[in-house]
Simulated scan of single mutants.
Amino acid sequence: MDEPAAPGMTVAAVASATGYSAQQIRDLERLGVLGRAVRAANGYRQFAEEHVRDLHAYRDLSYAVGPVAARDTMTTIRRLALAEAAALVCDLPAQLNQERAQALAARAALQAIQTEASIEDGPRETDAMTITELSGALGLRPSTLRFWEDAGLLRPERIATRAGTARRYHLDDIRAARIAVALRAAGYRIPDVRNALAAISELGAVDEPLVVLNRRLAAIGKRAVALIRATATLADIIDDAAP
């Protein structure tokens, strides 16, 4: 265990103050996430309050943008010129803003579909669409609808034509396709979309995906607050590193 021979914080004290293990602290120092600890004459590390501050910032930043991006950011800003480091930090909210915009768009789409579902009497033949009509209405390629059919998201009717068969999408599939568009825009993977559509089919409502999206928006809000906290420390690091 590292014990200082002069006044300063031991690695154990920093671990106690931050919740990181002693080995994690040594690793983060080695990677450049933390500034170098002072070494006493006997070689033991002596940490300062700035290291505790930076570890708290790293935890918030990891929660906000992920550990890899957090590590890269805190390592890089120590090496960049002030203007470049500041620009890097200013770009950090972009990912969260994009995730929030996508989730809001998905929620709005699902709420619209929920409203439609509450006033519909049921599928009507006049609501049926061809693959060309549906793909055009949704802004998708027809090949995307075919892929979603292969993945089990859609089950259009097949009708005989002189050229062979053609797909005909009734109200249930039209609604499923719209939900799939909304969920895919919010970052859902195909298996997640399939599960959500199955739940909607069983429950006859879109409440479950809306609950998930509301939880995601709340989580994004918490990550944004963590990023705000971390940014203040990142500004201090940039100032300290500036010549």
Rank of each mutant, 00 (worst) to 15 (best):
N97R: 15
E116Y: 12
P123V: 08
L104M: 08
P67S: 11
Y63N: 07
L234H: 02
R168E: 02
C90N: 12
R216W: 04
Y20N: 02
L171M: 00
D60E: 12
Y44A: 09
P7C: 03
Q98H: 06
A106Q: 07
E84L: 08
A57P: 06
D121W: 13
G32Y: 10
V181W: 00
V89G: 13
Y58V: 04
A241H: 12
A232F: 11
D240N: 13
V38C: 09
V33I: 11
L61F: 08
R100N: 01
L96H: 04
A226M: 07
N214C: 07
T115P: 00
T161W: 03
N97F: 14
V181E: 00
V11P: 01
G204M: 13
L31F: 15
D240K: 15
V52S: 09
I237M: 14
F47S: 07
H51E: 01
A109H: 10
R141Y: 04
Y20L: 09
A198Q: 13
R26M: 03
I228H: 14
G136N: 11
T75E: 13
A177L: 05
A17P: 02
S201C: 11
V14F: 05
V206Y: 11
L31Y: 15
R79M: 12
T126Q: 05
I174N: 07
V33G: 05
N42T: 05
P7H: 04
P7K: 02
T165H: 08
